[in-house]
Amino acid sequence: MIDPVNKSEIPDEWIEISSMESTKLIEGINKGIYVLLSNGSILNRGYTTGTTAAIAAKAAVLSLKSEVNHVSVPTPVGIRASMAVKSTNGYASVKKPFNDHESDITKELEFEARAIETDEIQVDAGRGIGIVYRDGLQIDKGNPAINPVPMKQIKAAIKEAVDEIGISGAKVTISLPKGEEIAKKTLNYKVGIKGGISIAGTTGFVEPWNDHLGEMKVDLIKESSKVVLTTGRLGIRYSNILFPDHTVVLAGNRISEALKVASGDVIICGLPGLILKWGYPEILENTQYASVAEMIANDLKSEQILKGFQLTAKKAENARVVIVNRQGTIILDSEELK
C-alpha cells in the first residue's frame, strides 16, 4: 500500500499489527488523514491553511444559492479534502481541523469567506492574512501572503462551486478573525510577513511532526536516550514513521558532530547521498556516476555500494545506520551486517 500524501510504502505487517480495524484504517490512509507508523500506531494529519481556506471559499460561493454544511475540495496531491462548514447567503466559516503536529498553532483556527457573484474568479485577502513586506519570498512585496500552490487550490475550489451553481465567476474574500493575534506567535514578521498569518501548504495536508529544517539541536541530542540523526526533510519524515519511539533530529552534513554528543540508542537514518558520502567520501571516484542515488539505482548490490556502506557502518561505531529510498523503504541496514 502507498501513502497517497507522502508516497511512502506501507508494509502489510504494519496494518496487521495496528489496533484499528483494517477497513477503517485503510480508508483513513487513502483519504490522507492517517499516518501509520512501523509499530502500528496512528497519527492524525490535518489540513493546511491553504486547504482550509479553499473549503471556506467554496462553501461561501455555494451558499449564494443555498446553505451547505459539508464541502470537499481538491488538494495538490490529487485526493480530496472534506470538512464540515457553516454557510449562508455568500458567507461561510470553518475551523482548521485538529492534527497531531504538536507545534501547529493554527489548528482549530476559524476561517471566514464572503463571496459575491462577478464575471470572473477572484481571491482577496481580508483581516488576519498577512502582507509581504520584504523581497525574496514566493509572493511579491506588498501582496497578501497566500502562496502560489494554495492560491491555485483556492481558485480551483471556487471554480468547482461556480460551475455547480451555474454562474460565471465569484469574488471571494478570505479572512481570519484571530489571524493577527496568532501571527504574533510565529516567525512571520522576521521572514517578511506582517499583519497576519500566511496561507501555505504544498500538499494540502499537515504532517504530524515538525519538519522545519533549522539548526541541529545539540541539547536535544544530549537529552535523548533514543535518537535518530537524519539528513534532510525526507529523512525526518521517514525516521518518524520507522522509529516512532525515538527523537528525530536533523543533523544534515554534521553527522560526526552529532555523534560526539549522542548516547544511548542512536540511529543514523536517511537517503543514501549524504550518509554514504559521509562514511566513504571517495565513493564516486573512478565511477561513471554523478551521484550516489544514481549508483544505487543502477546496482544496489555493487561492490562499491557494499564497501561504502561497510565503511559508513564502521565510522558510525555503535550507531545503527539505516538507508532508505525516496519511498521510505529500508534498502540498507547495518543490523544486517552483524
Rank of each mutant, 00 (worst) to 15 (best):
P281C: 06
L64C: 01
G204V: 04
A56P: 08
I10L: 03
I131D: 03
S224Y: 08
K217M: 04
S175Q: 04
G169Y: 15
V266F: 05
A60M: 13
T230W: 02
C269Y: 05
S8R: 14
R254I: 05
T173W: 12
N99W: 00
N147E: 15
Y91I: 12
V322Q: 08
L311S: 10
S256K: 14
I33P: 00
K222E: 05
L234K: 14
T312R: 06
D100L: 00
E112I: 05
E215G: 06
I158A: 07
I331H: 07
T118K: 08
K152S: 15
V132L: 01
E285N: 11
L25V: 12
Q288W: 06
L36M: 02
V35A: 05
W209A: 10
Q310D: 11
K107F: 13
S239F: 03
I305V: 15
K159I: 02
K58H: 11
A251Y: 05
T247D: 13
G214H: 14
W14H: 07
N30A: 14
S72E: 15
I158R: 09
K315E: 13
L109R: 07
S22T: 12
K222V: 06
E67M: 06
I255W: 12
T51M: 01
R114A: 12
N30P: 10
R326N: 07
P74T: 07
L250M: 08
S103L: 12
D245L: 06
V71Q: 11
S22F: 02
K171Q: 14
E16P: 04
P272D: 11
P150F: 08
D333S: 11
S22Y: 03
V324M: 04
K159F: 05
G90M: 05
K171F: 11
M20L: 15
V61A: 07
E117V: 13
D100Q: 00
A316G: 09
